[in-house]
Design a protein around this nucleic acid. Structure first.
Length: 371
DNA sequence: AAGTTAGTCAACCGCCCGAGC
DNA sequence: CGCTCGGGCGGTTGACTAACT
């Protein structure tokens, strides 16, 4: 299955041995000088990658377990494509491994079944659970589909943390997240960090808020937990309807949201694609495949500006619904989509991943009901 | 059995950030 | 303050295998 490990090759196996022995003797670091010192003919980056992803001790080999699968989904919902952070919560797993797993197993699986437009969410999930592991041509997913991911600002298919605003970019409010170095000094698990540092989990806060609107059990106010200034959105602890801060234990708040989402999915009777007669999507939105704006009309973009963070090049990545898969706008794969409702989101969710897809559509559905 | 298509994953690429000067 | 360098990260590629026709 897949490409055979390179260490099957005698030469590389020898290189692996040299690299392993060198690092065991001298420790990690100084990757640039490592090849010369160790007598390897690879660049330092390559050595580091080989070590981190393959040779390092305590790496867990083999299939992702269901428990790990669940953790990945949860954390991806929370953190987006922060693979290193997700990997940090899964001992023995590398960011590369998780990234591959997400891109091949999870996102693909969800994409397939959510294309079944007339199925209820619960049906879709049941189908996904029974996903044919390998497969032939039952679900056409083309390589061009994958290659269309290239040249996009981000392959973000989930709700992602935003990077700090780039200098010179104005009117872009982003959600701040800690730098790599800062993260390294943060104690505890990611989820604990989020608990202790509200700025780490801004999109989770959004997730909770969006869910709360769908659920109806929380305030329907769009952005009660966000304050903003010119440069950044400052998130406040999640507040209940009566304004009290919820003091959640580590993991508890996330588990709660997952449970709530599960409840919504189980109880919802949302029929995808069973909506108003076809209308042309708003000009500009239609042409902007691959941007999060396609999920919204311009008015909705304005309304939701505190949640839907602008994504400029290398900038914000906090998408309520964003996927570079959408860039396949000219692909036949996507031409069959029935853009309806003037918003597009009722079908749009089929090209978003599980979390943001559902959240966005539930959110939109909720907004529609509120009007 | 052969050809085609889809799925997998190690490795590569390029960008970004922080440290040091 | 600006430049360079090292390291880290996420996105993408392409070789390879398995499933299917």
């Amino acid at each position: 299955m897949g490409r055979a490990p390179c260490n099957d090759k005698v030469g590389l196996k020898k290189g692996n041995d040299i690299l392993t022995k060198y690092i065991q003797t001298n420790g990690e670091g100084s990757w640039r000088t490592l090849p010369d010192n160790a007598g390897l003919s690879r660049c330092g980056k390559s050595c580091r990658l080989r070590w981190m992803n393959y040779l390092r001790a305590n790496l867990k080999r083999g299939n992702i377990t269901p428990a790990e699968d669940e953790t990945i989904v949860k954390l991806h919902n929370a953190l987006g494509n922060r693979w290193s952070l997700i990997a940090g919560q899964l001992p023995g797993r590398t960011d590369n491994e998780i990234k591959n797993y997400w891109n091949t197993h999870l996102s693909r699986k969800l994409y397939r079944f959510t294309r079944t437009k007339n199925e209820s969410l619960s049906t879709i999930l049941n189908l996904a659970a029974a996903c044919k592991p390998r497969g032939g041509r039952s679900f056409p997913t083309t390589r061009p589909h994958t290659k269309k991911l290239k040249n996009t600002a981000s392959n973000t298919v989930g709700i992602s943390l935003a990077k700090p605003a780039q200098s010179g970019t104005t009117s872009t409010r982003v959600l701040e997240y800690p730098t790599t170095k800062a993260k390294a000094h943060l104690p505890g698990t990611i989820l604990e960090q989020v608990e202790k540092n509200p700025t780490i989990g801004p999109c989770l806060d959004n997730t909770a808020r969006i869910l709360s609107q769908c659920d109806g059990s929380k305030s329907a106010e769009l952005s009660p937990n966000i304050e903003s200034d010119d440069s950044a959105v400052v998130l406040r602890p999640f507040q209940t309807q009566n304004g009290e801060n919820e003091a959640l234990e580590p993991y508890e708040w996330l588990d709660g949201e997952i449970m709530r989402l599960t409840h919504i999915l189980e109880s919802a009777q949302i029929q995808v694609g069973n909506v108003a007669p076809e209308q042309p999507r708003e000009k500009g939105v239609n042409a902007a495949l691959g941007t999060e704006q396609e999920c919204f009309t311009s008015e909705e973009i304005k309304e939701s500006s505190t949640v839907l963070i602008n994504s400029n090049a290398g900038g914000g990545e906090c998408h309520a619904c964003s996927s570079s898969i959408n860039n396949a706008g000219s692909d036949d794969e996507w031409l069959g989509w029935n853009w309806v409702d003037g918003v597009g989101c009722h079908n749009q969710w089929a090209v978003c991943d599980e979390g943001d897809m559902m959240l966005t559509c539930l959110w939109e559905a909720d907004k529609g009901q509120a009007k």
